[in-house]
Nucleic acid binder design. Structure first.
Lengths: 147, 147
DNA sequence: CCCAGAACAGTGTATGTACACTCTTTCATT
DNA sequence: AATGAAAGAGTGTACATACACTGTTCTGGG
């Protein structure tokens, strides 16, 4: 006996959509971190890229994109802006493989940004609460893993 | 006695940054929902806007932006594309206040998209697991609230 | 009635994101 | 060595996001 499937309603989508929720959260958090990082002249994404490039210097671009959870082609575009500013240099490893190097200017900028980041992170963490923080961390990791 | 504050390291930022994590999760989820919605011709954001406009029809644009957790000016831009496609109509409530109305075409498109959304949502939910799903929901709500 | 300020919305500019497609280089196989 | 597949990366196009700034309309106090 085929059961009648309940039709999905607009209201349900409006109140439960996980995509909407995670995007909304990401926008809010990004606005906060961007504001905090502003004195450094870096946006959240640029900060993330510099940090990753600093920790994993010399790895191929497609690996860096993978680490950052970014489409490879999105990374290419993001790199253009910070390369224009002289913070990084994209160099050829071999004829087809390229990788990111931090310039001294980029390193200095990152050093300047780190305390600003720490402040934003600490503020958010305090507001989320020590109890919920690791739960949040786990939730986001899970989401990324299964999506 | 002033304690020496430990300097923040690149490594710490790389592994713990909540902004990076929530953005990464949002990108992954968005890619999945966009893929699922593709047959409808709607992107995740457009779907969210249509859903919200359908549920809260007639409210001022700045209120709609607030509901969606979007900057008002971002909403303006997002509306342009779906208005161009004839899915909505932005109408004047009074000289300065405007609001969104779904066109019949927009309503039909939304009806077509709803089952696709439900499928994506259900798939994600199954992968996250019934136990973690409400926790995730709470985490994202909290994040948005405090950021 | 007038007008100053608040409320509401749009633009200019810049960055972020991704898919489809293309280009070049490497590498394994013959 | 020739070559075709696979690997690595860039471009074209379109949409998403937000801040700073601008323009317009309403509204209350005089």
């Amino acid at each position: 006996m085929a059961e009648k499937k309940k039709a999905v309603t607009e209201k349900e989508a409006a109140t439960t959509c996980a995509c909407q929720k995670v995007r909304m959260a990401a926008r809010a958090v990004t606005r906060a971190y961007d504001r905090a990082l502003r004195p450094s002249g870096l946006r959240s994404t640029q900060f993330s890229i510099l940090v990753a490039a600093s920790v994993a210097e010399g790895i191929p671009l497609h690996r860096l994109a993978e680490i950052l959870g970014l489409e490879r082609t999105s990374l290419t575009r993001n790199l253009a802006a910070i390369e224009r500013e002289g913070l990084i240099q994209v160099t050829s490893v071999d004829g087809r493989t390229r990788s990111v190097l931090l310039t001294p200017v980029g390193s200095a900028r990152l050093k300047q940004a780190l305390p600003l980041w720490a402040q934003a992170q600490q503020t958010l963490r305090a507001r989320v609460g020590e109890k919920d923080w690791p739960i949040l961390d786990h939730s986001l990791a899970k989401l990324k893993e299964v999506a």
